[in-house]
Write a protein that binds this DNA or RNA. Sequence first.
DNA 1: CCGCGATCTTTGACATCTAAAGCATCCTGT
DNA 2: ACAGGATGCTTTAGATGTCAAAGATCGCGG
Lengths: 173, 173
Amino acid sequence: MASEHSIDSSEPSADFEILVHGARQGQKPQLRLWLRMLSITKMISQEIRRRLRVEFGATLPQFDLLAQLYRAPEGLKLSELSRRMMVTNGNITGLADRLEADGLIVREMLNGDRRVTVAKLTRRGRETFSIMAKAHEGWLRDLMADVDEGALAESLAHLAKVKASANRRLVED
Amino acid sequence: MASEHSIDSSEPSADFEILVHGARQGQKPQLRLWLRMLSITKMISQEIRRRLRVEFGATLPQFDLLAQLYRAPEGLKLSELSRRMMVTNGNITGLADRLEADGLIVREMLNGDRRVTVAKLTRRGRETFSIMAKAHEGWLRDLMADVDEGALAESLAHLAKVKASANRRLVED
DNA sequence: CCGCGATCTTTGACATCTAAAGCATCCTGT
DNA sequence: ACAGGATGCTTTAGATGTCAAAGATCGCGG
């Protein structure tokens, strides 16, 4: 505890733990884990966001959208993009507008179904994303450089359970 | 792998993993852990956000701000709030505006220093937050109900390392 | 006592987000 | 056929987020 707290009390990062009505030591482990994941993702997201902006003039949601398309050479329906990115449909419209204006993606209505729009990476989008992704991966390796492989692997396994649990509650109700 | 994927492929939640330029099995564990944390926090955040909205007409950032003040009976400077919530100063202004309009917090300029504004919970803010926090804690227990205490404890410990690592990189550079 | 950098909050321009409504298009059952 | 529900995208209103710059105030050194 002392070590954990010493990190936060002297740094500009937030300490969410022990802040929500009395979460303590062994108490309320779900709440503690939740708050810890939140503070980590917030902290790292901001750094990634900052680097994407200064090094590539891009935003994190834009990077995310490009990543989805990079893995789908045939392109994706906008609604499929919104499902995979876990954002609402309305969100994708503006995001795709900007990326299309930047020439990184194109919208196509090739289907017989005129309701459907498919987004694809352009050649430039593919090249740009490829460079960004390599940098992005390096940033993460750097940020987690002090974490041993064992801890990474175990976290990955445990968090799979967390994800499965939350998933189950969210779809089976 | 199969089990992990089976969860995602049939559900409306995103599968970030295996999506960013070829992250695979034992490869790039940092990237995989990052994407997993991201998808979990996104998934759970949306559920929490939804419940806060339908049950209390509140938003997650508002809940977060109230939580910070709840733990600080003397109130907090707006800049201290922004530090703890890990958002920029400009963000706090509007957030505090709305909460003040709702009568949940007050801004006071009691100091000799007229630059400083301190935000405090009102009685109503304290009572409201207290109820929301209890519900919030229950939601999390429910969402993580299938995760055994051991996995929770180990995740907590491992993620402390991740947090410390990221923290170190972000402040020592 | 005065200037000038440091500190604190707000403002302004934009990009993301959500929820909900609006439109167009498709498809199915009769 | 065709009415009506389902599906897919966009639009709207409002909240949140960033960054950068503007204002206000403080405090210290000369």
